[in-house]
Design a protein around this nucleic acid. Structure first.
Length: 441
RNA sequence: GUGGGUGUAGCUCAGCUGGUAGAGCGCUGCGUUGUGGUCGCAGAUGUCGCGGGUUCGAGUCCCGUCACUCACCCCA
């Protein structure tokens, strides 16, 4: 049994995961994002630079470390890809062309207690755009759009909703309303997922120091959501006025408009999204998967104006991070996502006799040369056994060598004469196909 | 870190107030002597998580421990 929180991915599942990674990569690169890989290990200084001691970091240590030579450089495994990226940007600022756009798909580690959808080792796929001094707002739109497009290529997943909000908008709203502690209001509003509105209402009065009317207003704002820009008049109707609010509204509207026309993924403004107390300063993202709401967000991010700074120059950025493991493992566990077969082979060449192995290998080579994944039967068992071997693994075709070759589609039972120099399986059988099975009775 | 739940065959689980360990699925073989799936017949597999205690006797009761799992916290 694998160690809890360190998922083990079986072949059929791994095919699905690789398909996801391929599509993400393709989309990211189509939009000009450059690949980057940073080390799994960073100095503890770097990892905790933002004072985020909250995150449980796995530290790295040699089993046989010399007692005397304690080399007091403390190392840890990275817990996300944004912090290492910020370090990378600062170190390479002189060599980079800004705005710098990169994608990064890597494992990260967090020493938390694992549970459904929460792992200690998992894969994240991040895209970020970072600039020197100032980063034009249209990159917020770009990042949202690229991730939404990437997600829409994952057509075998349950429906996804990319929910967008803007910290300026809610901050401006709460400030314009006269809230004494804006951060406290956000913290309480963030609990609306799990706590009934009445409880949040009481907390807004008790903990965040609002009047009952102000609390009503905050809850009213949190209820606003729309997949188009109709949220703008809805917010304005609440009657609160503030410069930041107006700015945030305009930005959020721009993101929603910029994502218009994307199909397969719902992109909507949802004014309850707050993203805790992170480094986000404007646009914020969260993503939920239908039927898997309890997982929380599977893809989050936002605008951070001051994540990276060397004291003189500040590098503002905007990014979004997809939790590939969180997205896929729960689907695997419920048996809703799998692959048409557990091996790459599209063809099994039957082996009549051990003496025929060389001839069978030659047939396999002919097929492989044309891109058809092929294996030769391991032992010259009865053909019934060899067919069953293929069936168990989901291999769709069994090849019978002879004076006239024959190939059998073991799903239909159809068998026909074939020439290894020209025969090709249907395109959909060439590679394992990712399949989403609605639900199992 | 805090608080619940669960550990029995490869998998899903049953096993009552203690009395020598079970089902379904899967697996292997045969029927079907070189073309699978259906069907029939036969067969194999367990340190009952681990350690201790109570008892004539513990899968069952008690204590400890480990693992898994769920919730809180936090988040992908």
């Amino acid at each position: 049994m694998p160690i809890s929180g360190f998922p083990e991915v079986l072949p059929a599942q791994r095919f699905a995961e690789l398909a996801v990674l391929d599509r993400l990569r393709t989309t990211f690169e189509l939009h000009g994002f450059a690949p980057l890989e940073t080390p799994a290990v960073e100095s503890l200084d770097q990892l905790t630079r933002k004072g985020e001691i909250e995150k449980e970091v796995y530290v790295l240590r040699r089993l046989h470390a010399d007692a005397g030579d304690d080399g007091n450089v403390e190392l840890g495994l990275h817990f996300d890809l944004t912090v290492p990226f910020a370090r990378f940007v600062l170190e390479n600022a002189g060599r980079l062309e800004f705005p710098f756009r990169r994608y990064q798909i890597q494992k990260v580690w967090r020493g938390e207690r694992p549970q459904q959808g929460r792992y200690r080792e998992f894969t994240q796929a991040d895209i970020d755009v970072i600039a020197r001094d100032t980063l034009p707002f249209h990159h917020d739109v770009e990042v949202a759009r690229v991730m939404a497009e990437a997600l829409s290529t994952l057509d075998f997943l349950p429906p996804l909703r990319l929910q967008v909000n803007n910290r300026k908008l809610i901050q401006g709203f709460y400030t314009g309303l006269g809230a004494p502690d804006v951060a406290a209001v956000m913290r309480e509003i963030d609990k609306l997922d799990k706590v009934p509105a009445e409880v949040v209402h009481r907390a807004l009065i008790g903990t965040a120091g609002l009047t009952s009317e102000q609390a009503d207003q905050c809850l009213a704002l949190a209820q606003v959501s729309s997949a188009d820009t109709s949220f703008v008049p809805a917010v304005e109707a609440l009657g609160v006025k503030h410069e930041l609010l107006a700015e945030g509204l305009a930005e959020l509207a721009a993101v929603i408009e910029g994502c218009a026309g994307i199909t397969g993924v719902t992109v909507e403004a949802d004014l309850r999204i707050a993203r805790g107390l992170d480094y986000y300063t404007g646009t914020v993202f969260e993503t939920r998967m239908q039927g898997y709401e309890s997982l929380g967000s599977v893809c989050s991010g936002g605008r951070y104006d001051s994540l990276a700074s060397d004291g003189k120059v500040t590098y503002p950025g905007v990014g979004i991070s997809l939790g590939v493991t969180r997205l896929l493992m729960p689907l695997f566990q419920r048996g809703e996502l799998s692959t048409s077969r557990s091996v790459p082979s599209a063809v099994l060449v039957a082996l009549p006799n051990e003496d025929d192995r060389a001839a069978c290998d030659a047939i396999a080579q002919q097929l492989r040369a044309r891109g058809i994944a092929t294996e030769v039967a391991a032992t010259p068992q009865k053909f019934g056994k060899q067919i069953r071997y293929a069936e168990r693994r989901g291999i769709p075709f069994v090849w019978f060598p002879g004076d006239t070759h024959e190939v059998k589609d073991i799903r239909s039972g159809d068998q026909a004469v074939a020439d290894p120099a020209v025969w090709t399986p249907p395109t959909e059988d060439l590679h394992p196909q990712v399949v989403f099975t609605e639900d199992i009775p």
